[in-house]
Design a protein around this nucleic acid. Structure first.
Lengths: 236, 236
DNA sequence: CGGATTGTTGAGGATACTCAAGTTAGGTGG
DNA sequence: CCACCTAACTTGAGTATCCTCAACAATCCG
């Protein structure tokens, strides 16, 4: 499970970039690297939160399930992201499940190291706070959308968020280069896969996106922004 | 605008309770106390975030408006709460407007003091992080509700959240002892005041709550929990 | 090649919104 | 203290959006 850790890879992560070599070695000495196959969970909702993580490579989907079994995609975890920091939220357990959508590599620290690391590396504390802060703003944006916008606009915003946070620019547009199902998008936008399918079909006919089984390419982001902001009729 | 600050009042606030007298004096020396009349804003969305605050007395409503003018109530601020900490979110401006719903008293620090205070009083950093963490979990809960629940259940959860976070236990039930309009509740639950009115009327007929103009008393919280969790038909 | 997962598309209907008209409560000023 | 005015609330009717149900098609993987 555990392998040696490449310092140069870790250096590229914003969370660590301001650390001295000595600090970095100290921090990394307490971590273990783990490999996760596509479809497997790094941790599951309700489990005792005994580790926190940084994603080095790959892509994770964080979900929450309600008591009735309804699922929601909370967010995607991208390389460099800190996740599973239940301790920072004063929680003993993980509030959601994070699943690898492609083969992924994480760095894992025992949660017992959290307080010590924050104390000894203040930059990390600031960074952790801003991580949580960014998520909070994201959550507020989604709440606003769910409260005030109709489905097509919500889906537009969802797709644009995906593109911004996890997309990869190409000549033809912005590609989501890991599997995303219509169900996933539905669970991000607060709708059903049927509605997402219809909307994406319409957008595809208009040349705004290119779909496919768990595939997505955004051809015309600007037009999607217009739809998302309600400045254009919408195609449904 | 500025008055002397009573140390014994501040002592009761969790954020400061672990500080030594010397620390507290240092922190308070940089703060100014402000009075805000009901209906006035402590700060407004988009303003440069040059202060952060603790609410000493009263009650605030934090709102965000969309580009089209749709409003959402983000949360209520209760005495002891830290708010306006845009800096922690790495924002130069306030993401929302906070308005006093009753006459309120705040402690205000210049935002320039933020980094210094965090450095010199680590307990404050941990506390700030947990404050933001708690808000994040709250936001996730609301997202889940908006995504998966029908209106009546969302309103039930909204009312229960209000009761838990800002309610006051009485013989007859849990009282919200500051003005809350149906419009407010609607903007918390992601619906219209019409729908809220209908739902609360039905609940009132069933003896679950007692309404009134900007008044709310929760008579039977347990039954509302059942409605919120979908274990009971609902009254619409 | 066959099974399973994912996605498409149609029809019908329910939820909750919009529009509309009125009522009640509270504050203000004469 | 009463009349008035406004803001908050109530309630009804009609309807749009989007969900549910359903059946089928396409894609992937072993």
């Amino acid at each position: 499970m555990s392998t040696t850790i490449d310092r140069s890879v870790v250096r590229t992560i914003p969370l660590f970039e301001r650390m001295t070599d000595a600090e970095l070695d100290d921090v990394l000495s307490q971590a273990a690297s783990r490999r996760h196959q596509a479809g497997t969970a790094v941790f599951e909702q309700g489990q005792s939160a005994d580790h926190f993580f940084v994603l080095l490579h790959g892509r994770l989907r964080v979900t929450q399930v309600t008591a009735e079994g309804q699922q929601m995609v909370v967010r995607m975890v991208n390389p460099g992201d800190l996740f599973g920091i239940a301790r920072a939220l004063r929680r003993p357990d993980y509030p959601g499940t994070s699943t690898a959508v492609v083969e992924s590599i994480t760095l894992a620290w025992p949660m017992t190291a959290w307080d010590g690391m924050l104390e000894q590396h203040p930059a990390l504390a600031v960074n952790a706070m801003q991580t949580v802060g960014a998520r909070l703003q994201d959550a507020h944006a989604r709440m606003r959308e769910l409260s005030t916008e109709e489905v097509e606009r919500r889906v537009a915003h969802t797709v644009l968020r995906l593109a911004n946070q996890s997309g990869k620019k190409e000549a033809a547009g912005i590609r989501i280069d890991f599997p995303v199902s219509k169900q996933d998008i539905a669970e991000m936008a607060g709708t059903t896969l049927h509605t997402v399918s219809r909307i994406l079909s319409a957008w595809e006919d208009a040349g705004l996106v290119e779909g496919g089984r768990q595939k997505l390419l955004i051809r015309d982001p600007h037009q999607l922004v217009l739809i998302g902001d309600g400045h254009v009729p919408g195609l449904l």
